[in-house]
Design a protein around this nucleic acid. Structure first.
Lengths: 216, 216
DNA sequence: AGAGAATTTGGTAGTGACTACCATATGACT
DNA sequence: AGTCATATGGTAGTCACTACCAAATTCTCT
């Protein structure tokens, strides 16, 4: 790796760090790109070359965590699907837990600014799309449309577990382990412990009513 | 309802319709707000009073469809949860099917423009949040954190069914019924027909491997 | 080491979304 | 008709982001 790439990585990180600093101090909306560029001692053009939008400054870390897990999943054709999906969840959570301050900062910013929130949610959906794509290639392809449908649902549920776990995890700092929550979620999923929409043509599937106690 | 409100509704609809026209003809990015305002024969200030951002011009219809369903759900405390969630899905799909052209246009625009896509996905998550909030009030509250978690997962799965169904439905126009797809999805969910992430502490739950055929 | 190629950088001049503000016009009510 | 509340249109400005160019920096090859 030449000096060129080293410097590139350095300035990229410098810009992102300064951006987080300013966002935390003054809020996302009250920080201009010029201020960030000035703080990082680069020109605005340079900043835009690294980060195409102001939001990517905030979200790159989360995006990478998600993308890495999908990439890893694609490289594990031997693993069966349920274990693979569990591993994806664990990997993403592990990545996020490795930098809890930044994750919390991201969610704070998303709560304050609707554009950040929008791009964060967009990014999570793209993760779902990527994971679904990886899943399709692992499903029997004799009914492609059905396979796509199943892949979308399975990937969506996986995404949901991650999102719900992370939400609780950032809302209750220190009191819960993300991995523990994830395991609880998977247990609920596989044991029918969740109230799910039921098809009327499927007369007697296990159902919970409003008056039933929460499953243990 | 006085003349004032009639006019308000009329201009609001006029602006949104002209916007869709221009977006379809020239694309989202190549249409300026001033052009839309001019086409609707109002000043830009007026347009911004009705639609705070350019994206809301596109997404209001979908947003309303989702919000209406949640509102309806809140008003049905007698219905048990699985039936209620199914009804929510059916209502949203029915709303969207009532205006297929617009739905398709929305998804086209979302595919072309990343900001539209971001706001669309954001809106879907807000639906999940609202539905989860409604669900929490229907779950036993002696363990609030657990109830919130379960509500988030259930609402998330409901959201997923809707999203996956709509995706297939817009991608294969005319060949599938949205309601049929939804029923298939619910059947898959309640019969364990989907590959789901499994918890390792839950040793023998039904699982599908990569080599297992797709469930029927 | 040094010349030349490739790439990175910073600056300039825009466009267009969006805000704050004010003066005018229009429907509502007595 | 007159007064009040609200809706409208216009002006001026901020800021994210783009296109483009000239200068600086790093890489490559001899």
């Amino acid at each position: 790796m030449g000096l060129r790439e080293v410097k590139r990585e350095r300035t990229r990180r410098l810009i992102a760090d300064k951006a987080f600093e300013l966002f935390s101090d003054n809020g996302f909306g009250r920080t201009t790109v010029e201020q960030i560029a000035a703080a990082a001692e680069v020109g605005p053009s340079t900043l835009y070359r690294y980060f195409p939008t102001k939001e990517t400054l905030v979200l790159e870390f989360v995006e990478d965590s998600l993308a890495d897990a999908v990439t890893w999943f694609r490289e594990q054709p031997a693993l069966d699907l349920p274990d693979g999906l569990r591993a994806v969840i664990e990997q993403v959570l592990q990545q996020l837990e490795s930098n809890p301050d930044r994750v919390r900062a991201v969610f704070d910013l998303a709560e304050q600014n609707s554009s950040v929130s929008a791009h964060l949610n967009d990014l999570i959906w793209r993760f779902r799309d990527d994971l679904a794509d990886a899943l399709v290639q692992r499903l029997r392809a004799d009914e492609p449309q059905r396979a796509e449908f199943i892949a979308a649902l399975s990937a969506g549920i996986t995404m949901n577990v991650i999102e719900s776990v992370v939400r609780v995890w950032v809302d209750h700092p220190g009191t819960v382990e993300a991995q523990t929550l994830a395991r609880q979620a998977m247990h609920l999923l596989t044991t029918g412990g969740l109230p799910l929409p039921t098809s009327p043509t499927n007369p007697r599937s296990p159902r919970q009513g409003a008056t039933r106690p929460l499953p243990h």
